[in-house]
Design a protein around this nucleic acid. Structure first.
Lengths: 265, 265
DNA sequence: CAGTGGTCTAGACCACCTA
DNA sequence: AGGTGGTCTAGACCACTGC
């Protein structure tokens, strides 16, 4: 009996333009993300995947190569391919989800909605989101984010209204904003740009975050883009400086950069 | 006449263990780094490389794929492969050299040495550098870094003394510290970890940087490691918050992260 | 239309690991 | 010895670009 699970039944579609290697890649990724395969588990060897899906070894290897490149799996000659520790992943994904980020750090995330409305975007916001002068209506969401019940971030999010009509009726407290944008509005994050500044907390922010006016903090602005290159979300956050710090790791050889947030409560 | 140059004469060695795709990769990389191929230039199409080096297309593509993955070249179906703009590269290297970083931003870098001495490392510094209790002597260098003559950073660097005997006699003002460590002491940066905190400037830092006590700034600590995994340098910096900001860019597809510093004078 | 890179096949030999 | 991933070949069809 082999010590690996074959993927659950799922066939490749030869009649669509999506490459076979990519279809296989998604199947394997899904096995891992849904937890059917755990970190450290061996995935089926190339020979098995070739047989099961009727693919040549080159095609199977192309899929596995990509998974290895982004640290989803680790390949060992003579031994096999194994699901990698997802910790490496989290660092890359952390910006997308405050909730996941906190859970990864062993903290209990929380969220409190302060405001939920539609409004005209202020000038710089409209510009960043590339809103035409005629239609600058945006959905505005103000949230305080908590870790172990302590306020950490004050977030203000703007999303063009035409991209998310009716979003004010959705339940934003129980599932993540990105999840809702993806599921109901087909807005998929492709890339994002974030700026981080040092910032002296104004009276209101300080009050919301439970620290003194004039204390040091971070002002973080994130602009998120779709595959098409259009921005679809802008979030401006204020973070407590005494509880947050950022960490950057660089490798010269592979030219890899890792960026993560850490919390001190 | 084709509009691309064939690589200068250089043969592959079939008798060594180094894979052929890797040998080809290095040949192409060398053409680019030595400037024989410029950004935007087309590199020979796969068919030409196959013919010239007597390789199958798979092998040639393996080399080109790697170059495309690390942004050395850009591939376009129907058009060809082209040398990428090296700007993308610089962002990954920026942390290593303040001087290069400023030049890339179009600013004139400057440096003022405030202190150059040997001293016993303070406890946390000795710990981070993994100095044995018996030998905690370090080289200590305090510098103010300038951009267009404006003070920007106050840097304090510690290097274990046993790694750099006699460094106090070197000319640190005209060439970069990393360059000296590399050239004279064979200390090559392999990877580095940096933490960034928000920080209220104390009286001395504020005076050195020319701003008011209590103003907001960043405290940045970098620990640099050798190939062996040993730390060899620790730099603790204070940056003016009103002139520096950090920028993080993420791509979901390739899981790439870009981290850079920006300056507002 | 010819030339480019993107996908895919079927098969081969090798180096490495475990037993 | 048998299985794994690493390298490599020769050939095929396709999609996209530009003339």
């Amino acid at each position: 009996m082999p010590d690996y699970k074959l993927p659950s039944e799922r066939a490749l579609n030869h009649h669509i333009t999506e490459p076979l290697y990519h279809q296989l890649l998604l199947i394997l990724k899904r096995e891992i993300e849904t937890g059917r395969l755990h970190p450290g588990d061996q995935i089926p060897p190339e020979s098995q995947l070739c047989a099961k899906y009727g693919l040549s070894r080159t095609t199977v290897r192309q899929a596995l190569q990509i998974l290895a490149d982004d640290n989803t799996i680790i390949r060992r000659r003579g031994k096999g391919s194994f699901v990698a520790n997802p910790k490496l992943h989290r660092n890359l994904n952390h910006l997308y989800s405050f909730t996941e980020d906190m859970l990864a750090l062993g903290l209990t995330p929380g969220s409190e909605i302060l405001e939920k409305s539609f409004c005209q975007a202020p000038g710089p916001i409209a510009e960043a989101l590339r809103l035409p002068p005629g239609d600058q209506k945006t959905f505005r969401l103000v949230r305080v984010r908590l870790a172990n019940r302590e306020p950490l971030l004050l977030e203000t999010t703007f999303i063009p209204h035409y991209l998310c009509p009716g979003i004010d009726a959705k339940d934003l407290s129980s599932s993540s904003l990105y999840q809702i944008l993806q599921d109901y509005y087909h807005l998929n994050l492709h890339h994002a740009a974030e700026t981080i500044e040092a910032f002296s907390l104004d009276k209101e922010s300080a009050a919301r975050l439970g620290c003194k006016k004039g204390a040091c903090g971070f002002k973080i602005q994130r602009l998120a883009f779709l595959n098409s290159g259009m921005p679809f979300e802008l979030t401006s956050s204020v973070a407590r400086g005494d509880k947050c710090l950022f960490k950057v790791e660089l490798q010269t050889g592979k030219h890899k950069v890792n960026f993560s947030r850490e919390i001190n409560l």
